[in-house]
């Protein structure tokens, strides 16, 4: 580490070639297979993909929270030039919550039912900072106000079951930002919420990220969320990144057939209602026995012999736009 000049001062987290396996060396599942991503300060990076594509596992691998029989088997996770994969348990405890905050998918079960809301947020502060319990609690109340919980001083005394889903997610966000981390990882933060609440939570996350000039890694399967929140987008499929682009490019000039197929699956309000949605035929591959070559090839309408013969590498085709497809540069018609 020779200073920020090395790789640009705005890089908050640099993940290179991350690989995570569950189960034994032979016959195990490579849930994350060579994922690289860069989080920049003040920017939102979205990780998009279907269920089981390895989005959450990527997040947990970054946090060092993969439980045996799972294991991160390769790659680097650089935070300020420090590889988190070589960090000790103690160091990781100091980093989790303080440097990287995480918001989970299910606000109903992500809060301890036996502790009051205030003490749970205070718990995170006390784990990282040498402050008194009273000071931590006072800060918890301020944080609750900050995330839009009305009557925060009184509500801090309440238990999680007194809160609605949206309010609990606000509480989880308050806990995640309690120590002002430079990086926030939000794993499907709105999936379990009502549509009306989703927008509010996303707005809150966006405002906090801007205000703290933090990097937000937003994991979602919802392309609508991506369009409204993200600066950069990575599309994941079966453990691999298939396409990486800024949000405009991805929505207006997607190159990978999978990205294009995903976009074909969503209905726009202006769409011709007589034109049917285009589902992607087939199912994601069984990772215990992945198909050879490109993992999307068996479902891809543009697949050729080369696609099953070798794995297409993620290639940069324009500034900030990379695609893992042999036919990315061809003008492919949609079906």
């Amino acid at each position: 580490m020779t200073g920020p000049s090395m790789s640009g001062g705005d890089i908050a987290l640099d993940v290179r070639n991350l690989r995570t396996r569950f189960g034994p060396q032979h016959g195990g599942v490579i849930a994350v297979d060579g994922v690289s991503l860069t989080l920049r300060r003040g920017r939102t990076t979205a990780l998009v993909g279907e269920s089981g594509s390895g989005k959450s596992v990527t997040a947990l691998s970054i946090m060092g929270l993969i439980e045996p029989p799972g294991r991160v088997i390769d790659g680097t996770v650089l935070l300020d030039g420090r590889d988190l994969r070589t960090a000790s348990d103690r160091e990781m405890e100091a980093i989790r919550g303080a440097r990287i905050g995480m918001v989970f998918q299910d606000p109903l079960t992500s809060l301890n039912p036996a502790l009051t809301i205030g003490s749970q947020i205070a718990e995170t502060i006390l784990a990282h900072e040498p402050v008194s319990a009273a000071a931590a609690h006072a800060r918890a109340v301020t944080l609750l106000e900050h995330v839009g919980v009305a009557d925060a001083a009184a509500r801090a005394q309440d238990y999680p079951h007194h809160f609605s889903g949206g309010m609990r997610q606000r509480v989880l966000i308050a806990a995640a930002i309690a120590c002002r981390p430079g990086i926030i990882i939000a794993d499907e933060p709105t999936t379990a919420l009502d549509v009306t609440v989703q927008a509010k939570i996303l707005r809150l996350l966006h405002d906090l990220q801007q205000e703290m000039h933090a990097s937000l890694l937003l994991i979602t399967h919802d392309l609508g969320v991506v369009a409204s929140m993200a600066d950069d987008v990575l599309v994941m499929y079966a453990g691999r990144v298939l396409e990486h682009a800024d949000v405009d490019t991805l929505f207006h000039a997607p190159k990978h057939p999978y990205t294009r197929a995903l976009l074909g699956c969503i209905a726009g309000i202006e769409d011709d209602r007589t034109a049917p949605l285009q589902p992607i035929e087939g199912l994601p591959p069984d990772l215990r026995n992945p198909p050879p070559g490109c993992r999307f090839a068996p479902r891809c309408v543009h697949a050729v012999a080369a696609c099953t013969a070798a794995v297409p590498a993620l290639q940069t085709i324009a500034d900030g736009h990379s695609v893992a497809c042999f036919r990315a540069m061809e003008a492919l018609g949609d079906d």
Partner: peptide, 12 residues
């Protein structure tokens, strides 16, 4: 999940 959340918040 709240145990994992506690770990993600840096709890020892």
């Amino acid at each position: 999940p709240y145990i994992e959340a506690a770990r993600a918040a840096g709890g020892s």
